[in-house]
């Protein structure tokens, strides 16, 4: 018997016990997360559920009579804002990702660009608000309009879209490209007909998640100057606007309890937009996983 074998103690049961405890601890911690979410949803539902009806969706934010108040202007503001954001950020983001992943050579410049895009994705959203205020509101004189807000939000989500799209492009096997080249396709034909379709589900997941982030953001818009009590539905890109998160914030700041119920109902509307969007993103990914050919 060698010394080392003598020193070896399997202590199997204690090791397994430790393993079981670790598993339980992980399960417990994950339940904490879910539990908080459930408490939040139940609380919001109890507080705002009774206030949620069709009138709530079609009425303006009444100050004099909370029972007549609604989110019409905020809902439309959110839709306008998101349209601007998506129109600008999605094509730009995908194009940038295609360039960076398919065309650009690995030079010092492109490495610098990539590094900065990754950094931008981590910049706090309020900083984008300052940027939007300086550039779009003051310099371009777009004023505190939907256009300024939408462009600011587009900047905010652009890095996220670029990174998600690049990852989706990177997940397309190089053999796709090689096969296309071997058959005589140009680089453009390869990308357009083979790489992009294969990467599309991944890109879409990234885009949807980025857009839903923009829907839920309030901080950059407050800084931009959109903390505004607006009753009218915007009719052009240059109109003042408010969005759902800001409306919720404004209501929760009022002293009277009725407004807190309105805020809770507003949160339900916001979740009613966000959860289906996230569900679509998850669905697209799952569908893609199933029919993936490689």
């Amino acid at each position: 018997m060698t010394t080392s074998e003598e020193m070896f103690e399997p202590r199997l049961s204690s090791r397994r016990r430790r393993g079981r405890w670790f598993g339980r601890a992980c399960a417990l911690l994950s339940m904490v997360g879910v539990g908080v979410l459930v408490v939040l949803l139940v609380r919001i539902g109890l507080e705002g559920g009774a206030w949620l009806n069709l009138r709530f969706l079609t009425a303006g934010p009444s100050m004099l009579d909370p029972t007549r108040a609604g989110v019409r202007s905020a809902l439309w503001g959110t839709l306008w804002l998101i349209t601007v954001t998506a129109t600008v950020a999605v094509p730009l983001g995908i194009a940038a990702a295609v360039y960076l992943h398919e065309y650009a050579r690995d030079t010092r410049l492109t490495r610098f660009i990539r590094l900065n895009i990754a950094n931008l994705a981590g910049v706090p959203s309020i900083v984008y608000g300052i940027l939007g205020l300086a550039v779009f509101v003051r310099w371009f004189v777009f004023d505190r309009s939907i256009l300024s807000g939408g462009l600011t939000m587009a900047l905010l989500v652009l890095p996220v879209i670029i990174i998600a799209s690049r990852e989706a492009l990177a997940a397309v096997p190089p053999s796709f490209r090689l096969a296309a080249y071997a058959l005589g396709a140009t680089r453009w034909q390869t990308i357009w007909a083979h790489v992009l379709p294969a990467a599309l589900p991944g890109i879409m997941t990234g885009v949807i998640l980025a857009i839903s982030r923009a829907i839920g953001e309030a901080a950059p818009l407050i800084l931009l100057g959109a903390l505004t009590w607006v009753t009218a539905v915007p009719s052009s890109l240059f109109d003042p606007f408010t969005v759902l998160p800001i409306q919720v914030y404004a209501w929760s700041d009022q002293p009277q309890a009725e407004f807190h119920h309105l805020a809770a109902a507003g949160i339900i509307v916001l979740l009613g937009i966000l959860l289906p969007m996230n569900a679509v993103a998850i669905g697209v990914r799952a569908w893609h996983q199933r029919r993936k050919a490689w």
Partner: peptide
């Protein structure tokens, strides 16, 4: 002061629905 101007805007817009009154709180 905002509650005053918001209330005023709300009453006013019932008579003048085409005038867009916005109240910010900064």
């Amino acid at each position: 002061v905002a509650p005053i101007t918001m209330a005023a805007a709300e009453m006013f817009q019932e008579q003048h629905p085409k005038v867009r009154v916005t109240v910010g709180i900064s």
